[in-house]
Simulated scan of single mutants.
Amino acid sequence: MTSRAQHPAPPAPTVGFDLDMTLIDSRPGIHACYLALAERTGTYIDADLTITRLGPPLADELINWYPADQVPAMSDLYREMYPAIAIAATPAMPGAREAIAAVREAGGRAVVVTAKYEPNAKLHLAHLGIDADAVIGDLWAEQKAEALREEGASVYVGDHVGDVRGARGADALSVAVATGPCDAEELRTAGADVVLGDLTEFPRWLSDYLVTRA
């Protein structure tokens, strides 16, 4: 009697997620924090404009409003003010909790890799009851690749072309959601492997991906 060789199932995936405009709608909190910073420092900041270009590091935005030699101090002040102003004002994106749950239900790990200051990123997730297996902050675009590799992520989900570059640098599948400043066509042009309307589509996509992968 012969038996067919049994092929082991592929390991459960580690999926990386960006934070701002992927898992959380950070626009209300960031808007309020920029207005507070402007009032505190007496410097005009167009908060409406700032929230249309979320994704890159804080310093990349502050350089538009402060002299370069003041940016480090303004970054520190913004981050100090942020928890009291922005955390409670920031909701989860539609489908965020379900996306994390889908990874867990598949036996995988969900990790957050973000450009946001890491302590504030953790405060957001704790406030919203989103439990990630790891949170790594202060990384932008290609810098994210190292953390994704260290965590063994085979998929990275983000809303910005910088997230696509981070995924590709880590040889991870780039899953983009068109919920941030970059539209679907821009994300595809940047090289995203998959473009979803938002995270509500992620559990079905993950289920299909795991079947194909097996």
Results as ranks from 00 to 15, higher is better:
V71D: 09
V211Q: 11
V155N: 01
V177A: 04
G42I: 02
P83Q: 06
W140E: 05
L210C: 07
H7R: 15
P57M: 14
L49T: 09
G107Y: 01
D171Y: 09
R213N: 12
P8F: 02
P72R: 13
Y44M: 01
D20A: 12
N64R: 15
A172L: 10
D20K: 05
R104V: 06
S3F: 11
Y156D: 01
A167C: 09
P57T: 14
Q70E: 15
K144N: 09
T200Y: 03
S207V: 07
L139G: 00
F202E: 11
G42Y: 10
T50V: 15
K122C: 12
D46R: 09
T43M: 09
T114N: 14
A134H: 08
A38L: 13
A214P: 00
S207D: 15
D133S: 03
A153H: 05
R104N: 10
N64G: 03
E146Y: 00
H127K: 07
F202R: 08
G166W: 12
H31S: 05
H124L: 10
T2H: 13
I30T: 11
A59V: 11
R27G: 02
R40Y: 10
A121N: 10
E201D: 14
A126T: 13
D183C: 08
T43D: 03
W65R: 02
L139N: 01
A147E: 03
P181Y: 00
R53L: 05
A99R: 06
E39C: 01
Y44N: 02
L19V: 03
C182G: 00
E151N: 12
D208F: 00
L125N: 07
G16Q: 08
E118N: 00
G152I: 08
D171N: 13
A36V: 00
V175W: 04
L187M: 09
A121R: 07
G169E: 11
E61H: 15
E142G: 00
V164P: 02
R40W: 06
P83K: 11
D208E: 15
I51S: 08
M1V: 13
E146S: 07
G95V: 09
A84W: 07
R165T: 02
D138S: 13
A99M: 05
D48C: 02
D163C: 05
A9C: 02
V15T: 04
A110C: 04
G180A: 08
